[in-house]
Design a protein around this nucleic acid. Structure first.
Lengths: 351, 351
DNA sequence: CATATATTGGAAAGCGCTTTCCTAACGACT
DNA sequence: AGTCGTTAGGAAAGCGCTTTCCAATATATG
């Protein structure tokens, strides 16, 4: 029912071809007076080009698909924000899917479903930012390779099992190691790791980085506790750990050995660390004197937190921007990488 | 270059029409053996329907457009999350746009640009969640009415200047009033309002609600300070207010009059409140003994904050879900409303 | 002034689907 | 056996654009 190009053409007294050339960037530009007539006709009728039809005719859609795990998670929303910025540069619209929200089918299928939807809409590119699962679905890999062979571009945040995809490497491992090293340099010797779910790639790699950092200092973690990749996951894991220590007095005697600096909790991300801090507070353990905490990501919203969270800062928005640039520019590099910086703050005893 | 339906049909030895009927929900279902042949041909060739072509033929796209202000803001990302959930139910894909990110053109044009893009893609519906500007762009209203007349559905969060749009009313005003009433009931008498930017509708309405609540208690705010709708905005506004009070001793004598309970800062949203708390902490004012703070929204990430923030809880995800349902179900009600609840916590002296 | 060369607008052929309309086949019924 | 009502597959006409190819006109060249 919307007005179509043929009506505009008729209204302006020109052919379809001419109207098309005037209104949509063509290599051929009709004469100025004709162009003017067409433009005002379009304006007058309130013409808006049908992008679907254009996509069909041009065989390029101006769409970019972004799949995240949970858009409500500040980690992903920051990335999404970066993607939007880059998408605007190339006048792309972003199609968003979240793998945390499952319809029918198994939870693991959400990513496949999202990717298939994007492929169906013939997005020019797909950005996979959902922290990938460990055992990648072969159907996903197959669908994506086919998509790439058909001219689609795929970029993944972190390594993936799709050989043809462009990958934006994130210094999760190195960052985790660097964070531990910085903490060790502060005199901390005893660590507990809140590892998140072990099937999540990102979490696993960070934990490996933590362990590697510890090993380099000839240290071993007091414990490695798994849990959900959420605030509640951090809370529960912390409670679990504290309970394993006995009652409060016993716990304190372990955590705060006079001879050494307190135990430091290494969380696989900031949100987990946040949950951990809440748990500690509820046990009336004070940070950083009784126990210390470090996170990962440096989520913007948490920068106002008190005590300020020691963490490894990842340039989340830039990651999104970079990924989108790699995805949207056909000539972009096939791979890129981002690193972050250790940010020492109060939660780990920094003044 | 992707495989198309005609190839599948040929591979299965049937006509285009039959293949279409088998693979895409048609009212007519071909015989079982034929269907099987088509399906396995599709599977074998890795056929994925071209949604653009389907959209063109069916004149419905399966797309829903969501325009937010800043997807990195937890308020909007929570809403987006809700929208995603509802969109999955109707198998819609969500197209996301943010008005905080501006290309060329004036910043105010971002919303118009987003809406025009969505109209161009012929989204089945558009959800306007960006906290609307006070002076709505007439071009926006025009574009949207035309869109609605052409069969599109529009739902706005909060009132809008588009008479044909469905509106999901949010109890910003009532919530703000209720929050103040609850605070007054706690014995608080002196309030400072951090109003956010005055051109933002949401902020303005909330401030009106605050003022209304105060008036009902025969009170007036000590001050109303405007600023950005961000953490930094809250920080700056708070610093500005504190500076107006003189040095720390003078400030303290004002804030914490022995005869009365401390001054309470009413922020137009949680993020502003967060910034305010950071500012207070940097001035070594303790919450809630020296000064108190209340926010608005009850952002999930902030629930782990200490001191816990008194606020008005809005069911953000549900709002998104509801808005999307109103948008996606043609037969849905033309309007709906959501209210929240006052949540008294430590930051305003609640035990 | 005639011919070769750009330019410019228009007709029409797709782009990959859906869906109406048609025809053929089949079974049921008298 | 003949007729009618069903059902099922296929041909073809769009959906709203872009773009190639043509024809016609305008410009440049000898």
């Amino acid at each position: 029912m919307p007005v179509k190009l043929s009506e505009v053409a008729q209204h302006a007294g020109v052919s379809l071809a001419t109207a098309s050339r005037v209104l949509n960037g063509s290599s051929r530009t009709p004469a100025a007076d004709i162009a003017e007539r067409v433009k005002s006709a379009a304006e007058e009728l309130g013409y808006v080009a049908n992008a679907q039809a254009q996509a069909l005719a041009r065989s390029t859609t101006g769409l970019v698909g972004l799949v995240v795990h949970d858009i409500a998670d500040p980690y992903f929303s920051a990335i999404a924000h970066g993607v939007q910025q880059a998408a605007l540069q190339t006048r792309h619209q972003v199609l968003l899917a979240g793998t945390d929200i499952v319809g029918d089918g198994s939870p693991g299928d959400a990513e496949l479903a999202a990717v298939n939807a994007f492929i169906s809409y013939r997005t020019d590119a797909i950005i996979l930012a959902a922290s990938r699962l460990l055992d990648e679905d072969p159907r996903l890999a197959k669908a994506l390779s086919q998509y790439i062979n058909n001219g689609g571009r795929v970029v993944t945040l972190g390594p993936s099992a799709i050989p043809e995809a462009r990958v934006l490497t994130v210094a999760n491992r190195e960052g985790a190691t660097a964070l531990v090293a910085a903490l060790v340099a502060q005199g901390i010797k005893r660590f507990v790791i809140l590892a998140g779910p072990h099937e999540r790639n990102t979490a696993r790699v960070r934990v490996e980085g933590f362990l590697h950092g510890l090993a380099e200092a000839n240290l071993e973690p007091l414990a490695v506790v798994h849990g959900a990749f959420t605030s509640k996951g951090g809370y529960d894991a912390t409670v679990e750990y504290l309970n394993s220590l006995g009652d409060k007095a016993q716990a304190l005697s372990v955590l705060k050995d006079d001879a050494e600096s307190p135990v430091c909790i290494l969380a696989a991300n900031d949100v987990i660390a946040l949950g951990a801090m809440t748990a500690l507070r509820s046990r009336e353990l004070s940070i950083p004197t009784d126990i210390q905490v470090a996170g990962f990501d440096d989520i913007p919203t948490l920068r106002d937190h008190s005590p300020a969270l020691t963490t490894y800062r990842l340039p989340l928005e830039d990651m999104g921007k970079l990924a989108a640039e790699m995805a949207l520019n056909p000539a972009a590099k096939q791979s890129g990488s981002v690193t972050g910086t250790v940010v020492l703050r109060e939660s780990a005893g920094h003044q």
